[in-house]
Design a protein around this nucleic acid. Structure first.
Lengths: 138, 138
DNA sequence: CTTTGTGCAAATTCTTTGCACCAAA
DNA sequence: TTTGGTGCAAAGAATTTGCACAAAG
């Protein structure tokens, strides 16, 4: 199957002009729902796109953010991580290995935005942390 | 009142050897519950402690973290922020000015740790974001 | 004395910026 | 041919590290 065409259309939905690089990055995000860092995206795409620069990956993700096509996760102290899934879900980060996992199926109350006289609240991010099984065994 | 004595005892509770610098930093955290960054702490203490170095503030906060006397907030993309309040509460960050506020009085269900076969979850951080009134008016 | 803490400077890491070249319409 | 995209190199910001000196017991 040719996923490039699908990804191309996907970008247009967010009013993002497709380019070879942008399509490759979005394609990666759609297929690898692992909340990758800039470096992970760059390292994954670099072998098949040797001229790709990390600056372009930064530029691209910043554009996707502006256009609302991805969400930035603030969960990892070291690097920014990106998520294309904008539905109501939470995240879990393993403090040992640093991997970030999705948590679905939580009670809807958890995602409710409280009323507050001092602020206009428009989103919530829920970050659980602890240890994943893989790290516990080793 | 001499708060140094109180702060001194407070540090000992967490098995932290008090020093002039450590006591000053903890004293600042106890009195300024504004989730300060390293730089804010350094800038606040520097005038009355001219020899204080930013490295010492980093060292001190890392020690406090290890000993469990403070919590690191992962909410601000730019800087680490520290909180001495370890009770169940959430945070709000204004996307315009970057200030972080406490949110108390949420339903207890929000802080429940879900069971998950793949991870051992031991804490949760809830970060609301939006715009604060001060920024909306300007 | 001996151990531990402090603070300077340098190193490291992540991200942004300036600018020249390239590509697409 | 003009506009916008890409990518190199340099700059910037936050944090850590190595090491010598100072402090405390």
């Amino acid at each position: 199957m040719n996923s490039t065409l699908h990804t191309h259309r996907y970008l247009l939905q967010y009013a993002i002009k497709p380019s070879v690089q942008r399509t490759a990055v979005m394609d990666y995000l759609l297929k690898n729902r692992t909340h990758p860092t800039i470096d992970e995206i760059y390292t994954a795409l670099s072998p098949s796109m040797p001229t790709l620069s990390k600056t372009t990956v930064y530029n691209t993700l910043n554009l996707f953010l502006e256009k609302g096509a991805v969400q930035a996760l603030v969960i990892d102290e070291k690097n920014a991580r990106y998520d294309i899934d904008t539905s109501a879900h939470a995240h879990f980060i393993c403090k040992k290995c640093g991997k970030v996992y999705d948590i679905f199926g939580l009670k809807p109350e958890v995602f409710e935005l409280p009323q507050n006289p001092n602020f206009t609240i428009d989103s919530v991010e829920i970050a659980y942390s602890g240890t994943c099984n893989a790290c516990k065994e080793s």
